[in-house]
């Protein structure tokens, strides 16, 4: 365990103590979806099925829903765990997905632990994308699409996709947890249309 279980913020004691605070928290923040666990390909499909209903309940237009779907698929790609090719501890494979309904749009947020050594490269990729305007993103996207790329390139392609479809800068944060791990949060906003 890397977090401090003595901290009262992380510790809910006694039976019947979880539901109400969690419920109030989700309600007051307008969180329409929340998941914590390992993100596999099947999970993505299930999340999309549930989100289809949640967005309908939230009266999102078809156009907006599609955009949220696209952005979500790519955000989840970032925290996706490939059981066959990746060697990760369960700790690293566990991620969080939150979808928040705001007045003018939907906020899709993912978070997961990374090794500290992975931070710089990822930060550079995000900064590079965030510096580009729509036209530059288009050129960069086409360039990466046409080049034979490995996994890193595919991840960049996904991030460009998020930036282009959300038409916003990608918000991110790296919180150093200890000498080995950093918590990485990525947030993309889809404006309601």
């Amino acid at each position: 365990m890397i977090f401090n279980t003595n901290d009262k913020n992380y510790h809910i004691s006694g039976p019947l103590q979880f539901s109400y605070p969690c419920f109030i928290d989700m309600l007051s923040n307008n969180l329409i979806f929340m998941y914590r666990g390992i993100v596999t390909s099947d999970l993505v499909t299930h999340v999309l099925q549930i989100m289809e209903e949640r967005l309908e309940e939230d009266k999102a237009s078809k156009k907006t829903s599609k955009k949220v779907f696209n952005v979500m698929v790519e955000c989840l790609r970032n925290v996706y765990f490939d059981e066959i090719s990746e060697e990760k501890s369960e700790f690293e494979a566990t991620a969080i997905l939150i979808v928040k309904s705001e007045e003018d749009g939907y906020l899709v947020s993912t978070g997961n632990y990374l090794k500290n050594t992975e931070v710089d490269a990822l930060k550079n990729r995000l900064d590079k994308i965030n510096q580009m305007d729509g036209e530059k993103l288009k050129v960069y996207y086409q360039e990466l699409l046409a080049s034979p790329v490995a996994e890193k390139g595919l991840s960049s392609l996904g991030m460009i996709d998020i930036a282009r479809k959300s038409k916003q800068k990608i918000a991110y944060q790296f919180q150093t947890v200890n000498e080995f791990f950093t918590f990485f949060t990525l947030e993309a906003k889809v404006i309601k249309k």
Partner: peptide
């Protein structure tokens, strides 16, 4: 297509 992920976009190309 309705929507697709980036690895599909490579395959489509």
């Amino acid at each position: 297509l309705e929507y697709f992920n980036t690895s599909s976009s490579k395959c489509l190309l």
